[in-house]
Design a binder for these strands. Structure first.
Lengths: 129, 129
DNA sequence: TTAATTCCTAGTTTATTACTATGTTTTTAT
DNA sequence: ATAAAAACATAGTAATAAACTAGGAATTAA
């Protein structure tokens, strides 16, 4: 049971932006500071942008900023954007066949709730102190 | 973010044993009832046995039983046995390099705690009703 | 006009998961 | 005794996804 490095890297990058908020930061800086491949960061930020979590400016002296105050951005948003929805097991996805009306599905739905609850209770600015 | 089918299948099989406890059940029966490959079940049960969660009897009329009353077996035991320890991100493993003394690591450790707490608060007999 | 940046698509490598194949050994019913 | 049914064991394969790279195009400010 692991979250992907997309989530790990993405969160670190987002915290970096949160620390610098509202200053605009280039991915090169983040890449250098966090030791994450620039090209990989570009991919991550494309999806972050598509989901309106960051704003960007192209061209020289360009970069990214969080789209809202870090106080308003929940860690869960970043992670679900980069990883897709939190679904520990098919059972918890709702699309259950007969076999999955099984007793153990309550484990996975309860787990799903708890994970989401945890991730959505932490905001980016909680991680900048 | 997904748990493996090992955990899903293994849990279902364990719940099946719990329902039949203390009767001994063969993997063929479980395979038939749960629609899980027999050979795959054999693998899973080898590791369950190695970790003393089940007892076995070889030979004709043989099979498996839970090693303890289902009241005493936590879902987390089954899952961690089959999947390995719950570590949402390297950060949470303790073996953190400099980069991972980062702010975001508190997310992963808190998440780890919550997941464990959830999985260890449910017992097999909670799933047999 | 050049350098630095975001933006875009596709490809490649690597690792893991999921599952299969082919047995051996043990035990019980017949 | 023998045959069937079960656990036990190892190795191999196929599919999938994750992680990352390559090579650019478009944009913008110094």
């Amino acid at each position: 049971m692991r979250f992907s490095t997309r989530a790990g890297y993405g969160l670190r990058a987002a915290v970096n932006l949160a620390r610098n908020y509202p200053k605009q930061i280039s991915l090169q800086e983040i890449s250098r500071e966090e030791g994450i491949s620039l090209k990989y960061l570009e991919q991550l930020f494309r999806t972050l942008k598509k989901n309106k979590l960051v704003l960007s400016q192209k061209g020289r002296e360009g970069g990214y900023v969080l789209s809202k105050n870090p106080r308003m951005i929940k860690v869960g948003e970043i992670i679900e954007t980069l990883e897709g929805p939190i679904i520990p097991m098919e059972c918890a996805a709702g699309k259950c066949d007969v076999k999955c009306s099984c007793a153990s599905s309550v484990v996975w739905t309860r787990l799903q709730e708890q994970i989401k609850k945890t991730l959505y209770s932490i905001r980016l600015n909680d991680l900048t102190k």
